[in-house]
Amino acid sequence: MTIFHFSRRGSLGWRTAVMTVLLMAAFSPGADAAEATPPQDLAQFCAVPETVLPNGFLKHARDAYRAGKPLRIVAFGTSSSAGTGAASRADAYPARLQADLQERFTLPAEVINKSVGGQSARQMTSRLEDDVVSLEPSLVIWQTGTVDSVGNLQLEDFGRALSQGIEMLEKEGIDVILMNMQYSRRVELLVNYSPYVDMMNAVATQSGAALFDRIEMMRHWASSGRLDFDNMPRAERASRAAKLHECIALQLADMIEKAVRR
C-alpha cells in the first residue's frame, strides 16, 4: 500500500482537470436527489420499479406454509449478509426479515444466518450440507457472486457451482432464492460484474430458482437518490446501511409472502 501514495494535492489536481475537460459548469450536480429525505413510509421508500421486482415460485416453502409448518429459512451468504458495515448482525437483513415475517404470518418463522465473508460460490457449495441441508429449511437465500467477480474467478465454474448447489437443494426439498451483488458505481469501476450477473440470471432461469436482483434494486435506490453509498458522508453510513438492510428485508418478505400465499 505504501508505495502507491498520492499527495492530496495531486489527486485534487487530477480531479479538477477531469472536471474542466468535461465542462461541468453547464450542468448542475445531482445534489437535489442526494439531499432528499426518506419518506416516513418504509414501503414507499423501498419501492422498486416493476422490472426489478423479485418474483418467484417457491414450491417447498408454499407447501410448508399450507401444511401449517413453521417457515424456516437459511440466509446463506457472504459479508453483506453477515451484516458487515451494518451496525451489527442484528441489523442485517436476515434478522430483519425474521421480524418482518413473524409480523406477517401467524405461523412461526425463523431466519437462520449462516453467512461467512469472503467465500466464492464454489467454496460455499461445500458448506451446503452442514450449514443448510442439516437445518432442514424449506427455503434458502443464497447470496453470492461478489467474491467470484472480484477475484475474476472462472465464470463457467461459477455457473456450475450454482447449478450443482441448486440441484442438490432441490433434491432435499429446499427452495432457492439467488441474491446477486451489492451495487456501487465506484466498485463497478474496478470490477466487471456483468458476466457474473448474466450467469446468475441464466442459472436461475434454467434451474427454476428465484432471483433477487439486489444489484438492480440498489442501483434504483442509488439513482433515485435514496441510498447512494458512493458519495455518503461518514456520519450517515451506519444509519443508511441499516435502512438498506430494512429495504432488502422488506422486499424479501414481500416476495416470500406473495409466493407462499398464491
Partner: peptide, 23 residues
C-alpha cells in the same frame, strides 16, 4: 488502473463494501 484502485480504496472505505474492495 493501479492508480485508479489506489484512489478508490483511499476515498471509498465504506465497510459495507469490504468484500468488494478486496480488489
Amino acid at each position: 488502473f493501479t492508480a485508479e484502485v489506489a484512489w478508490t480504496s483511499m476515498k471509498f472505505d465504506n465497510p459495507m463494501y469490504v468484500e468488494e474492495m478486496n480488489i
